[in-house]
Amino acid sequence: MSGTVQNFASADMGSNSGSGSGSAAWRVGVLFSRKGHMREPETEHFRGTALAVEEINLAGGVLGRPIEPVCYDPESSPELYRRYAERLLTEDGISTIFGCCTSSCRKAILATVERRNALLWYPSLYEGFEYSPNVIYTGAAPNQNSLQLARHLLLNYGPRFYLIGSDYIYPHESNRIMRDLVMREGGEVVAETYLPEQPHQDQVVRAVEDIRRRAPSVVFSTVVGQGAQVLYRIFREAGLDPRTMPIASLTMAEGEIRAIGPELCVGHITSAPYFSTVDTPANHRFVEAYRARFGTDAPVTMYAEAAYFQIRLFADALARAKSLDTQRLVDAVLGTELDAPQGRIRVDPDNNHTYLLPRIGMVNEHGDFDIVWEAKAPVKPDPYLVDHIYDHA
């Protein structure tokens, strides 16, 4: 799909849209893919966004006015992201966009967003080392997932790390950080390998053969999208056991686990602020509402949750700013706290990123994550790793 969607109902999300139309509506842009190699996590971003918008509109909107989404499907393509962002900000007269999953897509639209003085709400974890006054970052920065994961793996599995990633900016930067953490703690990186963003199965087979040959303690994967699903399947088909040599990730969530097959993934590890098994009243309500909306078997993931709570943050800021003016919205949202499904979050006025609660989960036989570790309190985002202290917990 490459055209405009004036509400979520016409984007194959069901019929209970609740979106408004007309000059009184708050018009915003939505850029998440439902096609291409990133379709699973980006569809979850899209659904979390849809659920929050619909709930707000059914409750009367913001200041009595509905939120009206103008949506495009960039099909996992940075070039389409760039094109549709330009269209939203010029032809459609939009100034606020909710969108992007991969860093390559965020980077593709960032210059346009800044040039037009628009505001991007970005709900995905990423590699850090970025700040824009025109972006609100609601996903995890490296000090909210990578640091905690490195410590957990070194303590519980051993010092020999195999790094494998997709060949673009996020994996390269995340692996650079992980290499630094591992080596500083006396560990060893036995290999660092990259696959195309849409790898051929033979390329994955060769990588898994190399993993078997080098016999690391753990595999740290920044392979994303469909390539990650192929990697996890071939890993098990090769007879490698996640209980003794897990693949550890910052990106693998419940949706992709279900697509791979939970029986192939038991024992693999993800570090993230949110899993569907988080035990908070807000999360119980969120999971119930999400599955009522999208199906009782719909996987509830970090991608859906961050997209959901950032719409809630936006609505709160909009109610105070009373305007879609970028600077007024930014001023209103900085410092804002919210009881998100994952727990209490806060937008840091220092860097536009979000205080989040780091957690580590292990895949169980149901395709969910058993939370095996969590921080005692939300961690201040440190996207540039200025306060590069290993143990933040």
Results as ranks from 00 to 15, higher is better:
1 M>N: 12
6 Q>W: 10
8 F>Y: 02
29 G>A: 01
37 H>L: 11
40 E>N: 09
44 E>N: 13
50 A>F: 03
53 V>Q: 09
55 E>W: 00
59 A>N: 11
66 P>H: 10
68 E>L: 09
70 V>H: 10
74 P>A: 10
78 P>L: 03
82 R>A: 14
82 R>D: 03
86 E>N: 11
86 E>W: 00
88 L>P: 06
88 L>R: 07
92 D>S: 02
93 G>F: 08
100 C>A: 14
111 A>R: 13
112 T>S: 14
114 E>G: 11
118 A>Y: 01
120 L>S: 09
123 P>T: 08
128 G>K: 01
131 Y>V: 09
132 S>K: 05
135 V>H: 02
135 V>P: 03
138 T>C: 13
139 G>D: 05
151 R>F: 00
155 L>F: 00
156 N>D: 10
173 E>H: 12
174 S>I: 14
177 I>M: 08
185 E>F: 00
190 V>N: 00
193 T>A: 10
195 L>C: 14
204 V>K: 01
206 R>H: 11
209 E>P: 12
211 I>L: 12
220 F>W: 13
229 Q>N: 14
234 I>L: 15
236 R>T: 05
240 L>H: 01
255 G>D: 12
256 E>Y: 03
275 F>L: 06
279 D>K: 13
280 T>N: 01
283 N>S: 05
283 N>E: 07
285 R>Q: 13
301 T>R: 08
326 T>D: 01
330 V>L: 01
332 A>E: 04
337 E>N: 10
343 G>V: 01
345 I>N: 14
351 N>Y: 00
361 G>H: 05
361 G>T: 03
363 V>N: 05
368 D>N: 14
368 D>R: 15
370 D>K: 10
379 V>D: 02
382 D>F: 07
384 Y>T: 04
388 H>V: 12
389 I>F: 00
